[in-house]
């Protein structure tokens, strides 16, 4: 079994970036000046994390207010009032689909490519992921109004066709080799992953790099099992949350028995308490013994690191780096 460490999702914003955003909103600095700060933030994060030889990282999602914004704006979709993001003290603006998605250019991959070019990190593009909401999570956290979409399936399909495939195609062309489709919704009991398998396979046809599906804020055994089985012959890798709940190791063996690669979120991104290295080593040793079919095991955190104060997030990254 090959063991590697990875990072994904959003990082805490530094005080410098937060201050720059406040100043931008109160029209004290220009958009160009704000962009400059974004890029400094990105560079700092990339330089720090890639020093530690993580197999892959994200862009830290510094430009994102939440998982759906500013994507909603790029899709020409208005947003509603604030809504709680699952069981967190974190809130997002809810997309309201009154009309169909209009997504003319692959904005996400374009902006990130430009940022990487301007900070002189294009050579690392193949280790940095594009982050997007997964279809299950998007539809579960949006409102459909009027006759825009006849069902959530209809919206999910349109989102994949118009946004994800466009981004995937462009991302690959630009040199990205990783796409993350965040799917916290799949950890809840409200949703059946079966409904989305065809959509993930469709993305897989378009993107020949790695497609990662982080599933966090819990563990839904049924969904994990079915996804692990159905997606085993694809380039799609699940990232599962093993820190929110204690998961019985036998259950894990059963759920993952058909897959060859998996990401395991062992580091808790929702608690400042530092995990002991010995505990991680022991857990990994147990996984090695138990998950004999797994060829590639990716160690990671259980959800976005931005739920932690910045200095603790970086401390946990350093901890994770000990396993790269």
């Amino acid at each position: 079994m090959k063991i590697m460490s990875i990072l994904y999702g959003s990082m805490p914003r530094s005080r410098r970036l937060a201050r720059a955003l406040s100043r931008y909103y109160s029209q004290k600095i220009s958009l160009e000046a704000l962009d400059e700060i974004y890029r400094k933030e990105l560079k700092r994060y990339i330089d720090f994390t890639l020093t530690y030889n993580f197999f892959r990282i994200s862009d830290g999602m510094f430009r994102w207010d939440d998982l759906f914004n500013p994507l909603a704006e790029y899709m020409k979709i208005p947003v509603n009032g604030l809504k709680r993001f699952y069981d967190n003290n974190f809130f997002f603006r809810q997309p309201v689909f009154k009309e169909k998605i209009r997504y003319e250019t692959p904005v996400i991959s374009e902006i990130l490519t430009k940022d990487l070019k301007l900070i002189g990190s294009l050579d690392r593009i193949n280790r940095i992921s594009i982050s997007l909401p997964g279809p299950a999570t998007l539809v579960a956290n949006s409102l459909i109004e009027g006759s825009s979409y006849t069902s959530t399936n209809d919206l999910a399909r349109d989102y994949i066709e118009k946004v994800v495939l466009k981004e995937a195609e462009n991302a690959y062309k630009q040199g990205f080799r990783h796409i993350d489709l965040h799917e916290p919704e799949l950890a809840s009991e409200n949703v059946k992953a079966d409904d989305y398998i065809d959509l993930y396979k469709r993305v897989s046809e378009y993107f020949r790099g790695f497609i990662w599906i982080p599933i966090y804020f819990g563990y839904n055994s049924r969904n994990i099992k079915i996804l692990a089985e159905e997606l085993r012959d694809t380039n799609i890798i699940l990232i599962i949350d093993l820190a929110t709940k204690n998961i019985d190791i036998e259950k894990l063996r059963n759920d993952l028995s058909k897959t060859k690669a998996v990401g395991v979120g062992l580091i808790n991104s929702r608690n400042t308490k530092m995990e002991k290295i010995a505990y991680i080593r022991e857990y990994v040793a147990t996984l090695e013994k138990t998950l004999s079919n797994i060829e590639d095991l990716y160690l990671t955190h259980n959800t976005n690191l931005e739920f932690l104060p910045e200095k603790v997030a970086y401390k946990k990254i350093r901890l994770l780096s000990k396993f790269t």
């Binding site: 937060a18 207010d65 974190f90 932690l308």
Partner: peptide, 12 residues
Amino acid sequence: FYGPVRVWGNNF
């Protein structure tokens, strides 16, 4: 206290 975390938008 270890430091601020974001709650929504740019509010910590």
